[in-house]
């Protein structure tokens, strides 16, 4: 039997926020009955403040899938969309006092449903769609390279087994395991050749305006543009006014309904991470 924490058991046996919000402002659906777990998340959002007023879920899956979904709804109620967009699978697992390694994919499912719901709020469909050059690696569970790389990065995964625990990729017929191994090698090889960033604290404080501008430029070049380009999009820096950074989307980003999320979840959060927590990014008009 699995070693579930008391909190997982509690959230499974007495799940909070089961159900569906009628005429929800945002809905996110991930997984399928064939894959063995599925989650439908619906949100009520205050349009003026962007605050999540209510969150409900319906989940098909095991105890930890149900507990992760319920925990997610508890966590994000009261958050703004922008705050919620920064919730990771690790946050969900931590909230539950941890999940067994083999069950980490349940927390990833929660994070994904939230992402899809936020994108849906900004106009994207309520089911995730594949974009650009994404490629399915695991055919049994329809897991893409993008999802695998993200799980590797965010959870510091080093082995194929860990990737399977977090994404289910490789957990069916197992034929894609060599490909997962390749993705792992490529990712960590690239990581090791990256020049080390100066620690966050020193980067933020005591920068001259000029240093600050060049650091913003550098971060956009290194951290943000490659990610957008991977999906056929791009962006350019237009202006910097104290804490406000103005950017313009290019390529497939133009007219993409998800640019709102990209702006906050990617551009702003990266600049905040590397330079200053007070940075606000806006799209140049």
């Amino acid at each position: 039997m699995w070693d579930y924490t008391d909190k997982v058991k509690e959230f499974f046996k007495n799940p909070r926020n089961v159900g569906e919000i009628e005429n929800a402002d945002a809905v996110g659906e991930v997984g399928s009955i064939i894959c063995g777990d599925a989650l439908r998340l619906s949100l009520r959002i205050d349009k003026a403040t962007g605050k999540i007023l209510d969150a409900k879920f319906k989940t098909f899956g095991c105890a930890s899938a149900i507990a992760s979904s319920s925990a997610l709804t508890e966590m994000i109620k009261g958050m703004t969309i922008e705050q919620a967009s920064r919730v990771t699978n690790k946050d969900i697992a931590d909230y539950l006092g941890g999940l067994p390694e083999e069950k980490m994919h349940c927390s990833v499912m929660g994070m994904e449903a939230l992402e899809v719901a936020i994108a849906n709020y900004h106009g994207a469909p309520l089911k995730k769609e594949m974009v650009g050059e994404e490629k399915i690696i695991c055919k049994c569970f329809s897991v893409t390279d993008k999802k695998i790389i993200r799980a590797i990065k965010e959870n510091n995964l080093r082995t194929v087994e860990e990737v399977t625990n977090y994404t289910k990729a490789g957990g069916g017929c197992g034929k894609c395991k060599p490909e997962i191994d390749k993705l792992l090698k490529e990712f960590w090889d690239k990581e090791s050749t990256k020049k080390p960033m100066p620690p966050k604290e020193t980067a933020k404080k005591g920068l001259t305006n000029l240093q600050r501008i060049s650091l913003i430029q550098e971060t956009i070049e290194r951290e943000i543009r490659p990610q957008l380009k991977a999906d056929g999009g791009d962006l350019e820096l237009v202006d910097i006014d104290r804490n406000k950074v103005y950017v313009k989307f290019l390529g497939t980003c133009l007219g993409c309904p998800a640019t709102g999320i990209t702006l906050k979840a990617l551009v702003e959060s990266k600049l905040r991470e590397f330079i200053d927590e007070n940075i606000v990014v806006e799209e140049a008009k």
Binding site: K9, F12, K13, G36, C62, A63, E102
Partner: peptide, 28 residues
């Protein structure tokens, strides 16, 4: 899903088993 059923049965003192992915320790 089977694991969820088993855990709730266990709460009532009933021991059974399931062929679901989650109970088999694998993903299939």
């Amino acid at each position: 899903e089977g694991e969820a059923i088993l855990l709730l049965l266990d709460e009532k003192g009933i021991a059974a088993s399931s062929g679901s992915a989650c109970t088999s320790g694998s993903l299939t």
